[in-house]
């Protein structure tokens, strides 16, 4: 396990994956606060020479939250899917697999390591981005609720991890990079969007809801209990996907 942890860390470090994810998180976090704070001014400047009168209410901390979660559930998730599927499939697509798996390394550990680094990278990036966001928000807005924001951030992290475990599961069924990327986007854009229309009964606890619950929780529209239950279900399903991935990968032909 230690060998694979170091091997994967070297890949993430030397191919600048940490830097790209960290940089993107930092950028989106800062951008979210600034966009929310200065949106009225931006609009006023944009329409300064026209007769249109722009009268927007003063932005609040809720606008900052909204910008943050909208940026992270759209742009950040898309970039992370591309980066992480490359991380999962690289050894096979680049032909490293025969050299790696001809050594006494357990396939189970190989998948566990990928999952572990994915969790660490996503949560570390979100934590850093959250800190950047809170720092600027505390300066520019009143009423920042750090505890609720951190729980929302955690819920977002769990959602991204769930989505990436779906991607990881797809990678063991194919031998290419594009197939799991395409299938994951299909789930993300189509299946989740359809499920998002269903807001009643058990559908309230489906992991796809974590796309919107973090913000709705901050807005007071979703209770802590529902959020925690949805988080728990997403973690459970991620664990199930991980076990299914390992079982499939144990039998996968790698040549």
């Amino acid at each position: 396990m230690k060998t694979m942890l170091r091997y994967d860390f070297t890949y993430l470090w030397k191919t600048f994956k940490f830097v790209v994810m960290g940089g993107l998180g930092f950028f989106l976090a800062g951008l979210s606060v600034l966009t929310a704070r200065f949106m009225p001014e931006i609009f006023r400047l944009a329409f300064a020479d026209s007769d249109i009168i722009i009268d927007l209410p003063d932005p609040t901390v809720m606008d900052a939250y909204e910008q943050f979660f909208s940026n992270f559930t759209d742009l950040f998730v898309i970039v992370v899917i591309f980066l992480m599927v490359a991380f999962f499939t690289r050894d096979e697509t680049a032909g490293h697999a025969p050299l790696i798996f001809s050594k006494p390394l357990r396939r189970r550990n190989y998948i566990l390591t990928k999952s572990l680094w994915m969790v660490v990278t996503v949560f570390a990036t979100l934590l850093m981005s959250g800190l950047v966001f809170m720092y600027y928000t505390a300066f520019l807005f009143d009423g920042l609720d750090m505890a609720r924001f951190m729980l929302s951030l955690f819920a977002l992290g769990v959602f991204i991890i769930f989505l990436l475990h779906i991607a990881l599961f797809f990678t063991v069924w194919t031998k290419t990079y594009l197939a799991p990327v395409g299938l994951t986007f299909l789930v993300f854009l189509l299946v989740f969007s359809l499920l998002n229309m269903l807001q009643r009964g058990v559908f309230r606890f489906f992991p796809n809801q974590l796309m919107r619950y973090p913000l709705r929780y901050l807005q007071g529209e979703v209770s802590g209990g529902v959020l925690w239950a949805t988080i728990a279900i997403a973690i459970g399903l991620s664990a199930g996907l991980l076990l299914a991935t390992i079982a499939k990968f144990e039998e996968k032909e790698l040549a």
């Binding site: 070297t10 890949y11 030397k14 191919t15 680049a94 490293h96 050299l99």
Partner: peptide
């Protein structure tokens, strides 16, 4: 292996 492929960054 017949065509050994290594991580290029190492």
């Amino acid at each position: 292996p017949d065509v050994p492929a290594f991580p290029r960054y190492l």
